[in-house]
């Protein structure tokens, strides 16, 4: 009776997982070219909507990958906690305007729990913080940018390029924000506000984004400097004590 039930669930799981792989493949190989084609053909300001849709599509495989893994309750709740901490972390720094430690916390999660969990934490934190500050065209971009920060941290850690040393983490954090996260957010501004993509408009937007990115990078580096060691110790201890995320 019980074994029957188990095979039933397994069958169900398998059916669902093939369904999800099919959706990912469909998105990447058909939806992206189709969107570019339709945008180029019909819309006058194609880059606006096409870029937004492509960013959305590119997040779907990550989410489906996570769904496929069927995470344990402990893993799920710990990730939820990390997302919530990333979202509220701003509240601890009310005295410092524009100080956003969110990206740093997402990176720490990526380092501790791997690339997929890092991406998920970043994307979900971006999404939830926009429930507080208001959703907009920027939401998918912010989700993707924060997610990529967590993903990169996880991947580089896994490959052994990044070490759990304070200096390494600070350099990685600063560079990632300056070169990847910040420019991604600037690109969203470029696509939504500029009427045409020209060298001039791009230069204007990226240059005006520089100070904001510098502040963001400073906040990330400072958070990683002060916070990475105690945080990673805590997360490692939790992993060891309760045997979580053993992959």
């Amino acid at each position: 009776m019980q074994t029957e039930q188990i095979t039933e669930t397994q069958k169900e799981n398998k059916k669902q997982s093939t369904w999800r792989t099919a959706v990912s493949a469909l998105l990447i190989f058909i939806a992206v070219p189709a969107t570019i084609y339709l945008g180029w053909k019909f819309a006058d300001r194609q880059h606006y909507i096409v870029s937004l849709l492509i960013i959305l599509y590119s997040m779907v495989p990550f989410f489906l990958m996570y769904e496929k893994r069927k995470p344990q309750a402990r893993e799920l709740v710990v990730i939820a906690v990390m997302c919530a901490i990333a979202v509220v972390s701003r509240a601890a720094f009310i005295w410092a305007p524009h100080f956003k430690p969110m990206t740093a916390i997402v990176m720490i999660t990526g380092i501790a729990f791997g690339a997929t969990a890092g991406f998920l934490t970043g994307a979900v934190s971006g999404f939830v913080s926009n429930f507080i500050f208001g959703q907009g065209v920027w939401t998918p971009w912010q989700m993707f940018a924060a997610g990529i920060a967590g993903f990169l941290a996880g991947i580089l850690m896994h490959k052994g390029i990044l070490k759990k040393k304070r200096l390494h983490l600070c350099i990685f954090g600063g560079l990632t924000v300056m070169l990847i996260v910040g420019p991604l957010l600037d690109t969203s501004a470029l696509f939504t506000m500029a009427s045409g993509i020209s060298w001039e408009s791009a230069r204007l937007i990226y240059l005006s984004g520089l100070p904001v990115n510098a502040i963001h990078a400073t906040a990330t580096v400072l958070t990683l400097f002060f916070f990475s060691k105690p945080m990673l110790e805590k997360l490692d201890r939790i992993k060891l004590k309760y045997g979580m995320m053993g992959d």
């Binding site: 709740v77 710990v78 972390s89």
Partner: peptide
């Protein structure tokens, strides 16, 4: 502020394990 975040993390993670169980 960082210490505060650190305290929050310990507190929240403890709660997380209870919730998960």
């Amino acid at each position: 502020s960082m210490d505060m975040l650190s305290v929050l993390t310990s507190w929240a993670l403890e709660g997380a394990v209870v919730t998960a169980d």
